[in-house]
Nucleic acid binder design. Structure first.
Lengths: 193, 193
DNA sequence: TATATACTAGAACAAAACCTCTAAAATGTC
DNA sequence: GACATTTTAGAGGTTTTGTTCTAGTATATA
């Protein structure tokens, strides 16, 4: 049933990820991806209709990987642990961390997104929203909007901020930032009904 | 002493800034900058040796503008007010905020930086470091490294994080984030000798 | 007014990007 | 072994980019 593949889709995504992490989105040219695997350009277009679709798939795969672990903790209701998930995850996923935290999504995939990608992204976004909303309800009772903003700040924005400058420098985030994230979490969400 | 200028350097920088803010660094093509002013390409190269230099000058001008106000407050010793400077500045400088907070510097100007730019950037960086160090000494006595990290977290990283998601969405940061930044500041640096 | 000078104007060029397209290679099924 | 199908292979087209270069234009000063 046909020739067996020499290069898998995942390999192209991995190569693209490494290129983004090292040189930013514009380093991910189709020929650079091919070149870093020793693969021909044709093999990439055989699997991905366009460069944009390759980047989008890479982005979705990475977000999904991050969110899976994050949502699991969030659903357990342990907010403090959820806030520490980002530093922890980033330490074992440096390239992925650089992709998600250093580059704007709209900028990574310019122009119109393919429908398939839009749907997947929308679903991931819904899952995350849902997770935050139920967590917020659990913590504050009825989810008033300022409450949700506090939660997102403490669980997403602050951990990302703590980690970003180290990712930019290409270093692993030091242990001290866990303290900072924890202290901030307690200040923002700690003393709550 | 020669023909009077129809287009000033600052106009090119302004146009480039608007383009970055709207479409990211890759939207800043030389012809796009020229086009948005109705200027010929030659006029740009008459003032800037290369596209990279244009972007670098734009970046330096923006950083300098931000830092001037920030350092003034920092020198006064009012850390809380310094932490609220970022949200405030960003509200009145949306494009500049997007430039500084959304795009990695190394990525904006790819490759080697011209010497002149490196010197200027190094000086700005020294000024900022110096400001943080004296502030930290004032607050903690001898500047131990973890103390400096706390200061940078509370004064730079957290305010930037609070603001970033609104800049990405193209909105002005709401007032509530000032509360969050303030609460975090107090938690991280508030109860100190 | 004449001239030197600062600037505008944009055509032209080389490099690089994305993508297409044709041909060949390799493998499972009859 | 022959065929159908999947995949590799990469040369070539089109578009866009940064940059150069030559020619022309307008102005301050003498």
């Amino acid at each position: 049933m046909g020739r067996s593949a020499k290069f898998l889709s995942a390999q192209f995504l991995d190569a693209a990820l490494a290129l983004v992490a090292e040189g930013g989105p514009e380093a991910v040219t189709v020929s650079a991806v091919a070149g870093s695997l020793g693969a021909p350009i044709g093999s990439i277009y055989h699997r991905f209709a366009s460069r944009d679709l390759l980047l989008a798939k890479m982005w979705l795969r990475t977000v999904e990987s991050f969110q899976a672990g994050f949502l699991e903790i969030l659903k357990s209701g342990d907010g403090l642990r959820a806030s520490l998930y980002t530093p922890s995850w980033v330490r074992s996923h440096v390239n992925e961390g650089r992709l998600l935290l250093l580059y704007e999504r709209e900028y990574l995939i310019s122009g119109e997104w393919p429908q398939e990608v839009r749907d997947h992204a929308a679903q991931l976004s819904r899952n995350l929203d849902e997770g935050f909303r139920t967590f917020t309800r659990k913590l504050f009772g009825r989810s008033a909007r300022p409450a949700l903003q506090r939660v997102i700040f403490a669980l997403v924005d602050v951990p990302a901020a703590a980690v970003r400058r180290y990712l930019e420098a290409g270093e692993a985030p030091p242990r001290i930032i866990d303290e900072l994230v924890r202290d901030t979490y307690i200040a923002i969400l700690g003393g709550n009904p």
